[in-house]
């Protein structure tokens, strides 16, 4: 069943046509990776779901309802942005307390704080943290809510191997609870481990959409990395016939 449905989404930023008629369903209870080279429209597509980018044409449906111009539907999803820069003056603790107040939703940060070892720097201000520490705080902020949809943009950025393993476990646990996860990553190994479905974007079009198995099968490769390379080669051949 489709939790999210993108329907003929078009979006242009000035001269740049970023999304050119994207239609895709995100299935409930699945971990879907959105892949594509830089500038392929991954983040823009995610942002149309979050209401941060308003499509020129097309519809975004969440649970069958259009999301455009609405905001209450966002109670049912959390977003972990790629680069999270938080207010400098706040401490980690204050930030973790602030977001639930803004969302007016209960949160359960404590197990996550322990798990990602955030308690070591709870009292520090955000501008005193390293990139990895910030990303851990980012993870706590995303996973502490009990919502059906998680959207993670490059969640592994700056994480050490131990934290990355914890993240993988956490994502699996969430899917077992029946939650849906949309994520992007440039680490193909991470994608191969974590994704159940793949959406591959290229130049504003959907180039592939389906399960990992289908991807490997159609490209006749053994890994996602190789499959993606194959897809890009194909597209190159198409755009430059000669």
């Amino acid at each position: 069943m489709a939790l999210v449905r993108f329907h003929h989404i078009h979006k242009r930023f000035g001269p740049l046509e970023v999304l050119r008629g994207i239609s895709v369903d995100i299935l409930e209870g699945q971990r879907t990776a959105i892949l594509g080279p830089n500038g392929s429209g991954k983040t823009t597509l995610i942002k149309t779901l979050l209401g941060m980018v308003i499509p020129d044409r097309g519809e975004v449906l969440f649970k069958g309802q259009s999301v455009i111009g609405k905001y209450l539907y966002r109670q049912e999803m959390v977003y972990m942005p790629q680069i999270a820069i938080f207010p400098h003056n706040l401490t980690v603790k204050e930030l973790i307390a602030l977001v639930p107040r803004l969302r007016r939703q209960p949160a359960h940060p404590d197990p996550l704080i322990e798990r990602f070892e955030v308690h070591h720097f709870l009292e520090k201000r955000m501008n005193e943290l390293s990139g990895g520490m910030k990303q851990k705080v980012n993870l706590v902020l995303a996973f502490m809510f009990d919502v059906p949809l998680l959207i993670l943009d490059e969640p592994t950025n700056g994480l050490d191997p131990i934290a990355t393993i914890e993240l993988k476990k956490l994502m699996e646990e969430e899917t077992h609870k029946g939650k849906t996860i949309i994520f992007s990553s440039h680490l193909m190994e991470f994608v191969q481990h974590m994704a159940q479905r793949i959406v591959f974007l290229l130049e504003g079009h959907i180039y592939f959409e389906g399960t990992i198995e289908a991807l490997l099968h159609s490209t006749e490769t053994a890994s996602v990395e190789a499959a993606v390379a194959q897809l890009m080669k194909q597209s190159h051949a198409q755009t430059q016939p000669a």
Partner: peptide, 16 residues
């Protein structure tokens, strides 16, 4: 300076 934080807020369930 609060642009990025505003983006975080925009993803929350509150009107723009």
């Amino acid at each position: 300076t609060s642009r990025d934080f505003m983006e975080l807020l925009l993803a929350q369930p509150m009107p723009r």
